[in-house]
Amino acid sequence: MRNLFPDVKKLVSFYYEGFRDMSAWGRKVWLIIFIKLFIMFAILRLFFFHDFLHDKYANDKQRSKYVLEQLTNSATTND
């Protein structure tokens, strides 16, 4: 463990210095990444993309029953 510490420190400083010395285009794309991830997870996922089966049914048994019903529903013209 004692030997691991300097390596972890080195690793942290590697990332820290990398981000600190980042070029202008690098900063710009990181900003875009954060905005994109915010829109995707804090807006789209939260408000628009709910897991349909997870929200509608409490457990897997109910979900299976629902999908089975959807799969076997014969109200097409084939009967």
């Binding site: 993309f49 709910h50 897991d51 349909f52 089966l53 997870h54």
Partner: peptide, 12 residues
């Protein structure tokens, strides 16, 4: 995201 929301029967 779309699999879970729009294509839930398929995803299951």
């Amino acid at each position: 995201f779309e699999f879970g929301t729009n294509w839930s029967n398929y995803s299951w």
